[in-house]
Design a protein around this nucleic acid. Structure first.
Lengths: 160, 160
DNA sequence: CTATGTATGTAATATCATAACACGTCAAGA
DNA sequence: TCTTGACGTGTTATGATATTACATACATAG
């Protein structure tokens, strides 16, 4: 996964999204989990853009498409996707974003542009290793980590 | 700041808290900001333990002490403390914790024990540097970062 | 002493999230 | 085949977190 993050660069997004969806199907199948219509649709919605969507945003979309319109519908699908590693929760935004490379073991960091709100998934193996090491110095065992950055993406930086 | 984190170790907490409070007064004075009764009290409350408190927890305490009992009272004081670098927001918990070494420039990471809920502030300079570097590869400029770990503290690890 | 900016108090409301229960579907085993 | 149990979905209701807007009080510079 050596590519610096694509989210900010012009790219064939239809392909990017389709590819992620295909891999998602494979991941769920391998896990013996069920990729139901709601779940697939939520993932598709998240894949439409490199942004993070709140549960209620997703819910509104679902509701117009004939799915349930109560919060648990969205939260359950999102929770499922996160558990399967197909989506990530962005703590800073109370929102969710599709995983760009599902199925691969990875330590993600998220780069959140404060201007255009694009969210890029970056590689955080090194940062995570530092965190683990520093935690170990205190005798703390890290199980899950949240690494998020707020700042300016290259595009918005150019305009400032 | 070479000390591995104290939060998990037995220590003279009264001194630890008093020291932080003293430094906090100095910080606000230097910044030309006002350390008012509500603000001081909120900081004292946060300093009582190495835990994170929700805004409503703080608010409940304030209310019993004759301060206002509406959410903005707590949120404003907390926001002030965070701005001054005297407290930190723990995104994962939607909660706040007092800064252990106010006044010093530092890149904090937070170690959150999932069992005893102690929150330790660790040094994250290295992790932050990795994050900045990886972000730079994508042309992203980091302004603020959130680095949090969820796991087991040494004490709770011993009991498991 | 008074004008100005800042802090506090309060009401109302917005936003985010979960508990609890009912119903439907599907597949495994009696 | 029938039944049972696990799982997914839908819905109601509620809980938890956070902000907007406006009124009042207070400190300090002029």
């Amino acid at each position: 996964m050596p590519d610096p993050d694509l989210a900010f660069a012009a790219h064939d997004h239809a392909h990017c999204a389709h590819d992620a969806l295909t891999r998602a199907e494979a991941v769920t199948a391998a896990a013996g989990a069920r990729m139901t219509p709601v779940r697939r649709r939520v993932l598709e919605i998240l894949l439409e853009e490199h942004k993070a969507l709140g549960a209620y945003d997703v819910l509104a979309r679902l509701a117009t498409e004939g799915f349930g319109n109560q919060p648990p519908v969205a939260y359950r699908a999102l929770e499922f996707l996160v558990e399967q590693g197909l989506a990530h929760r962005i703590q800073r935004l109370n929102a969710f974003t599709a995983c760009v490379h599902p199925g691969q073991d990875h330590a993600p960091a998220f780069l959140i542009c404060r201007t255009c709100h694009t969210v890029a998934e970056a590689e955080a193996t090194a940062a995570r290793a530092s965190l683990d090491a520093e935690a170990a110095r205190a005798g703390f065992q890290v199980e899950r980590s949240t690494i998020e950055a707020l700042g300016l993406c290259p595009n918005c930086r150019g305009q400032a």
